[in-house]
């Protein structure tokens, strides 16, 4: 399984948000580090097919991002995770499951499983407005997993979470990278340094680091500081 990105660019009037990015990603956790404004979110939105690139292509095993079959195996948790505050967690998952084409019995079973997985089973029938920030993020990852995605894209998933929730979230993601491509974007080094199998670093719309990552390495923070001058931590 391979996600292939070729010469992907997004240019606005006076800014090149993403400029000629080429990547090949395989199964495992792929960390994408970059300071705020580096172009990570723009890149991820193009990888999800919700933002049209100015140039370039994205394909998963040869299936183009614009193809329905691509979306069928894609899971996405955006940076600003929007939700319906008056829906219950369970209703929210069932609604998105319907959008993803899951049958009603399958959707019910899968939603219950995922609520259990992310530790929200006991609050599944409570309205989302009563959830904490961490609980909402976990609900976000649950919705991204509804269709058993082969490609999971999560954008700054730990933003706004307390340290305990961050660790919990990180462990959850680490488990998901065994048989799917997980692309995890963050500007916090500790989110990815011990779970990533492959490390990408992005600055001013360009990929400046693209290499397999040894989880025992301890110089990621140093690399990051050299590039971004401590903007992330």
């Amino acid at each position: 399984m391979e996600l292939t990105v070729r010469e992907l660019s997004k240019h606005y009037k006076d800014k090149k948000a993403v400029d000629g990015v080429s990547l090949r990603l395989t199964e495992g956790i792929n960390g994408l580090l970059g300071a705020n404004g580096a172009g990570k979110t723009t890149l991820m939105r193009m990888l999800c097919g919700i933002l049209k690139p100015t140039a370039g292509s994205v394909a998963l095993d040869g299936v183009d991002v614009s193809n329905e079959d691509y979306r069928a195996v894609l899971g996405y948790l955006p940076q600003d995770f929007g939700y319906y505050p008056d829906f219950t967690g369970l209703d929210f998952l069932l609604y998105l499951a319907a959008l993803k084409g899951l049958s009603r019995p399958h959707a019910k079973r899968k939603s219950a499983e995922l609520l259990e997985l992310v530790g929200l089973a006991d609050v599944g029938k409570k309205k989302i407005r009563t959830y904490s920030g961490g609980m909402r993020q976990r609900l976000g990852i649950a919705q991204a997993l509804l269709n058993d995605p082969r490609l999971l894209i999560v954008d700054e998933p730990t933003a706004g979470l307390d340290p305990k929730e961050r660790v919990r979230f990180r462990n959850l993601l680490a488990d998901l990278g065994h048989d799917s491509i997980v692309l995890l974007s963050t500007h916090i080094v500790s989110d990815v340094e011990h779970i990533a199998d492959h490390m990408l670093m992005m600055s001013e719309g360009h990929i400046i680091l693209d290499e397999p990552w040894d989880k025992s390495r301890t110089d990621l923070e140093q690399l990051y500081l050299e590039e971004f001058g401590g903007e992330g931590e």
């Binding site: 894609l74 939700y83 319906y84 919705q143």
Partner: peptide
């Protein structure tokens, strides 16, 4: 309410 990205990625069509 910023639910667009999730909805549009979720739906095949």
């Amino acid at each position: 309410d910023k639910t667009g990205p999730i909805l549009f990625v979720a739906s095949k069509s």
